[in-house]
Design a protein around this nucleic acid. Structure first.
Lengths: 233, 233
DNA sequence: CGGCATCCGGGAAGATACTG
DNA sequence: CAGTATCTTCCCGGATGCCG
């Protein structure tokens, strides 16, 4: 039954650029809509289907299914079954998949100069952590040493700075010098928008535990490039 | 009726990710099919519509028109009218557009590890020059000093190496230490495929003028990353 | 609830033909 | 040469429904 359909497009038959250039091949692999953002959401570790859906507002279930299938076929993602008790299926990047982080960072840094960039839109916790990795300026941090925990929705992250290097990972914030609780856009407003802590705490948009001065220093370590068309080019 | 539909997308109404993440915004700007490859072809300088068509095998005229319009709207490309005598219209990247080169390089370097990458496909002269910029390994070049000219189709390029740095530009090859004439895939076979010069000269696929030993050294300066799944990981 | 198959409407991409 | 016009095909996005 319907053998002709099977033969007509036996399997992939993906649209490719037919170009030996590496960049073109990269687009063959991750150029489809949503593909790179799915990778982004997996960069801090495995996630379940519904977590991905929740963190990618606007993606539909069938497109997410298609992307995960495609990324699995090309060897960028693997499905893994968690051992019981937590017997759930998760998607995880392969080693090669994790190597896509520089791509995501380069794109992100470049686009920050766009005059059309609207930073008031929603932001996932993963995106925020990756932006810290991308925008961290060691010369601003000097000999700063410290760690800050983040509680964003149900997710937990920990950022550690020492020796002019930054680490931003998913994990338990307990034991950090300070812990911030709030939404990702609020955290972004502090670090990138220059909004003072008090304003947000006053609005109950943010909760701060621990070393306040340390958080205020931390917020100065992530300078943004100038917008294009800005006279201070 | 259906006035609401008309107002809802009166004009542009481009599809966006509605995500504050810089990476997502980058994809809003250059994530459409062909957009980044159009930028790639402009990275070595302005080109005319039909040159772009010729160097992007597979793109159709209307899609190229749409991409150029879009890139112009977002401020990445400008149309310029060449002064008479050569009174022709060309497309050129803006300063911000030129800053996309790291994106293209990062994508290209990453994709080179793909097991699915087929280097036998066609390749534009621009892609070849950009691959030299991307893959150049200064430690391989040591104190090498020299310049090589390339004649590929009607295009002319010049690659200069000195002080452990490489320059690859469009321009007159006269005066270079050696000049190669042939197709871009043939040049790639030499540099990336390890094919000896003699074989290609014998097939009349390549013409060499000038310092042969210099070309043979040059061909060793561009190591490729290992393929994923290779046992020599 | 998690994951996947299916159907449908709209829009973007691809191919071809045509025009100034 | 530099595009426009038209038609077809395919992908994306939304909704529904099935199944474990």
């Amino acid at each position: 039954m319907k053998l002709e359909k099977i033969t007509s497009k036996t399997k992939g038959a993906r649209r490719t650029y037919e170009d030996a250039c590496g960049t073109a091949h990269a687009l063959d692999l991750i150029g489809e809509r949503w593909a790179l953002l799915v990778m982004r959401e997996l960069l801090l570790g495995p996630k379940r289907f519904s977590d991905l859906r929740a963190d990618l507002p606007g993606i539909s279930a069938n497109v997410l299914t298609q992307r995960l299938e495609g990324l699995e076929e090309t060897g960028l993602v693997v499905r893994r079954k968690l051992p019981p008790p937590a017997s759930a299926q998760v998607y995880e990047l392969t080693d090669w998949g994790y190597e896509s982080e520089p791509i995501i960072q380069t794109l992100g840094r470049w686009a920050t100069r766009s005059p059309l960039h609207d930073s008031s839109l929603s932001l996932s916790g993963t995106s925020l952590m990756l932006s810290f990795r991308t925008m961290f300026a060691p010369e601003r941090a000097g000999d700063f040493v410290g760690s800050i925990g983040f509680r964003i929705g149900h997710e937990r992250y920990r950022v550690t700075i020492a020796d002019g290097r930054i680490e931003a990972v998913r994990g338990d914030p307990e034991g950090a010098d300070a812990i911030l609780t709030g939404s990702a856009p609020v955290m972004a407003a502090i670090v990138y928008g220059g909004v003072p802590l008090d304003a947000l705490i006053g609005e109950s948009a943010l909760k701060l535990e621990g070393d306040r001065a340390l958080v205020e220093r931390f917020a100065t370590f992530f300078p943004l490039p100038t917008k294009v068309g800005s006279s201070v080019a």
